[in-house]
């Protein structure tokens, strides 16, 4: 019985089906929030679903020059990595469906896979634009990945645990008891949001798929079903990243631990993060790749280090 329940959870509610629906909703939310900032109306609610169904029903072209096996497998690989990562993030209460000490590291690595897949997709597409996009995706990875990891590890260091569900459960109470720690957690949260924007390759960090320079970057040769899976996996990555930040910094489904209020609290927190992401996307233009690297290493990385340093100093100074 409990095995069946576990499978149901992984496939339907906080797992795969919920993630797909919420990812489509998040894409609509993102586009709809983006539109009024440009003085537009924006697409209807059903739009991402229509895009996905249409892409699934279209012909899938595999160009002659590519390695067909790798080219076809890569989107599924990225999709699977993101869906797996989502199983460790608490949705309706703590702990998450799957939880063990140290799952934060697993999730951080699983969320890196879509970027690596993008660069491989660029290389295997055998098109100049794709290869350029792949190289840019990989170059950009070095700029945001380290600050992102450091930002994620700040609350872990603070509470002395690497378990996402435990951090989500304990962080709000801990912060209320020790208000000094608000400062490093806030710094890490901001770094995490900016780095997540880079991870999702959205403005100002949409350098790998800059449509005015290199057409569609790594996606240039993808069409039909494979493109639909890529799009879906990127939407899911957005939801997964937002949920991870909500769990690590905002307490996930806290202060409620029961089903319905927990879900509502989780949805509100993730939508707030998606709103910030959409706002950044609307407010800025694309920067160059060298500016991106400089920004990553001269501003983001030192800021996240400051967060960690403050935690260590506070703990050594006996503020706990």
């Amino acid at each position: 019985m409990s095995v069946l329940w576990g499978i149901l959870q992984a496939l339907i509610f906080p797992g795969f089906l919920f993630l797909s629906v919420y990812a489509l909703f998040a894409e609509w939310m993102d586009r709809k929030l983006f539109a009024p900032m440009q003085n537009r109306i924006g697409p209807p609610l059903i739009q991402p679903l229509a895009d996905t169904i249409k892409l699934f029903s279209k012909e899938t072209i595999i160009p002659k020059a590519v390695q067909a096996g790798l080219f076809t497998l890569l989107p599924y690989f990225s999709f699977a990595a993101v869906v797996t990562a989502f199983l460790f993030v608490p949705v309706y209460g703590v702990p998450a469906i799957s939880s063990f000490p140290g799952d934060l590291v697993i999730v951080a690595y699983l969320l890196t896979i879509p970027t690596l897949v993008l660069s491989l997709a660029g290389w295997s597409s055998d098109s100049t634009y794709s290869i350029l996009g792949g190289i840019r995706a990989l170059t950009q990875l070095f700029a945001y990945e380290v600050p992102f990891f450091l930002a994620l590890f700040t609350p872990a260091l603070l509470l002395g645990t690497w378990n996402i569900s435990e951090i989500a459960a304990r962080l709000p109470g801990f912060l209320l008891a020790n208000p000094f720690y608000f400062i490093p957690v806030l710094i890490s949260f901001l770094v995490g949001i900016v780095a997540l924007q880079g991870k999702l390759e959205r403005k100002p960090f949409d350098i790998p798929d800059a449509e005015t320079e290199i057409v569609a970057g790594p996606f240039t040769e993808y069409s039909g079903r494979l493109l639909a899976i890529f799009r879906l996996s990127i939407d899911m990555e957005m939801v997964c990243g937002a949920s991870l930040l909500a769990a690590l910094f905002l307490g996930g489904p806290q202060p409620f631990i029961s089903w319905m209020p927990g879900i509502i609290s989780y949805l509100l927190k993730t939508l707030a993060i998606i709103f910030i992401l959409a706002y950044i996307k609307a407010a800025v233009g694309r920067i160059r790749i060298d500016q991106m690297i400089r920004f990553g290493w001269q501003i983001l990385a030192p800021l996240s280090l400051v967060g960690i340093l403050m935690v260590v100093l506070f703990q050594k100074g006996g503020l706990i």
Binding site: A35, I41, A50, I61, A216, F219, T220, S223
Partner: peptide, 21 residues
């Protein structure tokens, strides 16, 4: 452009023929 905003009807401009209908 925002004045006519065809994204209301789901129309998006794509750069590559592989994505376009």
């Amino acid at each position: 452009t925002p004045r006519f905003d065809v994204e209301r009807f789901g129309i998006l401009l794509k750069g590559t023929p592989r994505h376009a209908d």
